[in-house]
Structures are given as structure tokens and as C-alpha cells.
Measured scan of single mutants.
Amino acid sequence: GLEHMADEEKLPPGWEKRMSRSSGRVYYFNHITNASQWERPSG
């Protein structure tokens, strides 16, 4: 619920959580730099 939404908002600017269609794993994508990574971004 609300706790999940608050957790999402802690991601650094530009980052969003996405799911890989090929593997079904969650990864993180930065739409500003077009960077993507499996680890949760910090800072």
C-alpha cells in the first residue's frame, strides 16, 4: 500500500523500477542517462 509507494519514491532522480520481459526479473532504469542495472541505485 502506501509503504510501497514511499519506498518507490526513495529512488534517485531519473530512476524507475522495471521488469525484464525476458527473465521476469526486476531491474532499475534511469530515463535521464539511459542507464540500467540490476542493483538498486543509491544516492
Rank of each mutant, 00 (worst) to 15 (best):
A35W: 10
F29Q: 01
F29E: 01
K17I: 09
H4W: 10
W15Q: 00
V26P: 07
N30D: 02
V26H: 07
E16G: 04
R25N: 04
E16T: 08
S22M: 09
Y28F: 07
Q37S: 07
R18N: 02
V26W: 13
S36A: 13
E9D: 12
S23M: 07
Q37Y: 03
E39Q: 09
E16I: 09
R25Q: 06
R40S: 06
R21E: 14
S36Q: 09
N30C: 03
N34V: 03
K10Q: 14
E16N: 04
S36E: 06
N34I: 04
P12H: 02
P12T: 01
Q37V: 04
R25M: 06
S23Y: 07
R18I: 06
W15S: 00
A35Q: 14
M5W: 12
A35N: 07
E3S: 12
R40H: 09
N30T: 00
K10G: 12
E9T: 08
D7Q: 10
Y27D: 00
Q37K: 03
E8T: 09
H4Q: 11
S22N: 11
R25A: 05
G24W: 03
M19G: 03
N30Y: 04
Q37E: 02
G14P: 10
D7P: 10
K10A: 15
G43L: 12
G1S: 12
M5T: 12
I32A: 07
Q37R: 05
W38G: 03
H4I: 13
G14M: 03
E8F: 04
N30K: 00
S42A: 09
W15N: 00
V26S: 05
L2C: 15
E3I: 12
G24T: 04
M19E: 07
Y28K: 00
W38A: 05
S23V: 05
W38S: 05
H4E: 13
N30P: 00
E3Y: 03
S36T: 12
G24E: 04
A6R: 11
T33N: 05
G1F: 12
P41N: 02
T33L: 06
T33D: 04
E16R: 05
K10E: 14
E9G: 08
G1M: 12
P41H: 00
S22D: 10
L11W: 02
P12Y: 02
Q37M: 06
Q37L: 04
E16D: 03
G14W: 05
H31Y: 14
E39P: 04
E9N: 08
E39F: 07
E39D: 09
T33K: 04
T33W: 05
L2Y: 14
K10Y: 11
E9F: 07
G14S: 03
M19Y: 15
G43P: 11
G43T: 11
G14K: 01
A35D: 06
Y27Q: 01
P13K: 06
I32M: 08
E3N: 11
L2P: 12
F29V: 05
Q37H: 03
M5C: 15
I32R: 09
N30G: 00
P13N: 08
M19S: 07
L11R: 01
S36M: 15
G43N: 11
R25K: 09
M19V: 15
T33H: 04
P41I: 02
E9R: 06
A35P: 01
A6Y: 11
Y28N: 00
Q37N: 02
E8D: 14
M5G: 12
E16P: 00
R40P: 07
T33F: 06
A6P: 12
S42P: 08
A35F: 09
D7E: 11
R40K: 09
P12F: 01
R21C: 15
L11A: 01
R21T: 14
G43M: 14
G43I: 14
H31S: 13
S23G: 08
Q37A: 04
E8P: 09
R21Y: 10
W15D: 00
G1T: 11
D7M: 09
W38I: 06
H4Y: 10
M5I: 13
W38K: 04
S42Y: 10
G24S: 06
P12E: 02
S42K: 10
R40G: 01
N34D: 04
E39A: 08
M19L: 14
D7R: 07
G14Q: 04
R18M: 06
E16Q: 06
N34L: 13
R18D: 00
Y28L: 00
Y27N: 00
V26Y: 11
E39V: 07
R40C: 10
R40D: 04
H4K: 10
Y28H: 00
K10P: 15
M19D: 03
K10M: 11
G43K: 10
A6F: 11
S36L: 14
G14E: 04
K17P: 04
D7K: 07
M5V: 13
W15F: 01
T33I: 04
L11D: 15
M19W: 15
L2F: 13
M19R: 14
G1D: 12
G24P: 03
E9K: 06
S22Q: 10
L2W: 14
H31Q: 09
S42L: 09
H31P: 07
G1V: 13
S36W: 15
G43R: 09
P13M: 08
E8Y: 05
D7V: 09
S23P: 05
N34T: 06
S23C: 09
H4V: 13
D7C: 15
A6E: 13
G24D: 05
P13W: 11
S22W: 09
A35L: 13
S22V: 14
W15E: 00
V26L: 06
F29A: 02
G24F: 04
N30M: 02
S42W: 10
G14A: 03
G24K: 08
S22F: 13
E9H: 07
E3M: 08
P41V: 02
D7I: 10
E8I: 09
V26M: 06
E8L: 07
R18A: 03
D7S: 10
E8K: 08
H4T: 14
Y27L: 03
